[in-house]
Write a protein that binds this DNA or RNA. Structure first.
Length: 304
DNA sequence: AAGACGAAAGTGGTTGA
DNA sequence: TCAACAACTTTCGTCTT
């Protein structure tokens, strides 16, 4: 067992808090992320090579395992094995049996779909390193998709990924579409379309995202110190005050702010590095940061 | 050689008639 | 429903370090 940290490496403070949405332990005083991915889904959710271990996956899967593909056929002809007609009383009974078998078969196809989806989603969850609470929400969303019949005509993994994306948004830890689509190897356009469709059909509204939701995420991926995040937040306050965020993509804006902050803090990152993480192009970063530097009279040449 | 720059053309979503 | 529009991307040649 690894020892749970009790002190912040950066400032030595013992004032730590656990953020169970992000699965991180952070220092309240300086904001350093001491431990991340605390809540790891892989143990419970992942399915390894051996498929015998299904009993270990939680309740969502268990209920689908009752029949394991063994189905019984009830012939439509009212004759017994030797070809003789079956008596009337027995015939109505058979009728009932057929009816119920049909019903259970329908529900099985739903269950099969669910099982496949849950498997896909758990893999995606661990690729993206998402905490359990978000994955729970995502799987709930998926069930609602099934009920609403949105899956028809779409791929299971596609809808699953969309649900995960939306769950992240709802938890206020949005990921760039680009990020999700490339991690899961799906087309960005297709994913975007599915996300929109799911939102519309389920009437899920996610408010407009603001750039500051991305600072933590991007900076830590870029290996930037917490001071840079602080710098970003400060700059963002100004951006909001001057309404320079209106009509701009939040990821692009966040990327530009981080670019500036990284230089100001003497931890320069290239436009390309940031663009990759933020899922925008260098051109967008350039456009945005030109706007910002001229509006706020920031002279980046002065740094380095 | 790598990073930054910016022009030009293309894409997909939103908006308003 | 359709066209205009703004934001963003792709591509590419050029300049700077």
């Amino acid at each position: 067992m690894e020892e749970t940290p009790v002190k912040c490496d950066e400032c030595g403070s013992r004032n730590l808090s656990l953020d169970d949405v992000r699965g991180e332990r952070v220092c309240v005083d300086c904001g350093l992320v001491i431990e991340s991915d605390i809540v790891d889904l892989s143990a419970e959710w992942n399915q390894y090579e051996g498929k015998d271990d299904k009993s270990r996956v939680g309740s969502p899967l268990n209920m689908m395992l009752h029949d394991k593909g063994l189905a019984t056929e009830i012939d439509w002809q009212n004759r017994d094995y030797s070809g003789k007609a079956i008596a009337n009383a027995t015939r109505t009974q058979l009728h009932r049996m057929r009816k119920w078998q049909k019903r259970s078969r329908v529900s099985n196809s739903r269950e099969r779909n669910l099982q496949q989806a849950m498997q896909d989603m758990s893999t995606m969850g661990s690729i993206l390193g998402l905490p359990k609470s978000i994955m729970d929400d995502a799987s709930l969303l998926y069930r609602r998709c099934l009920d609403a019949n949105i899956i028809r005509g779409r791929s299971i993994p596609g809808v699953a990924a969309a649900c995960i994306f939306i769950a992240c948004e709802l938890a206020h830890v949005p990921r760039p579409i680009q990020d999700v689509s490339s991690s899961l190897r799906m087309g960005k356009k297709e994913l975007g379309r599915t996300i929109r469709n799911v939102k519309k059909s389920l009437r899920v509204r996610t408010g407009p995202k603001s750039a500051n939701l991305y600072f933590d995420q991007f900076c830590s991926k870029l290996g930037l110190a917490p001071t840079v995040v602080t710098e970003c937040e400060e700059m963002y306050q100004k951006v909001v005050a001057y309404e320079m965020d209106s009509g701009r993509g939040p990821t692009g804006l966040a990327a530009a702010i981080i670019y500036i902050a990284s230089i100001v803090c003497g931890q320069r990152r290239t436009q390309r590095e940031i663009a990759d993480i933020a899922g925008v192009t260098e051109v967008t970063i350039r456009n945005r940061y030109k706007e910002l530097t001229s509006a706020f009279d920031i002279d980046l040449e002065a740094y380095e």
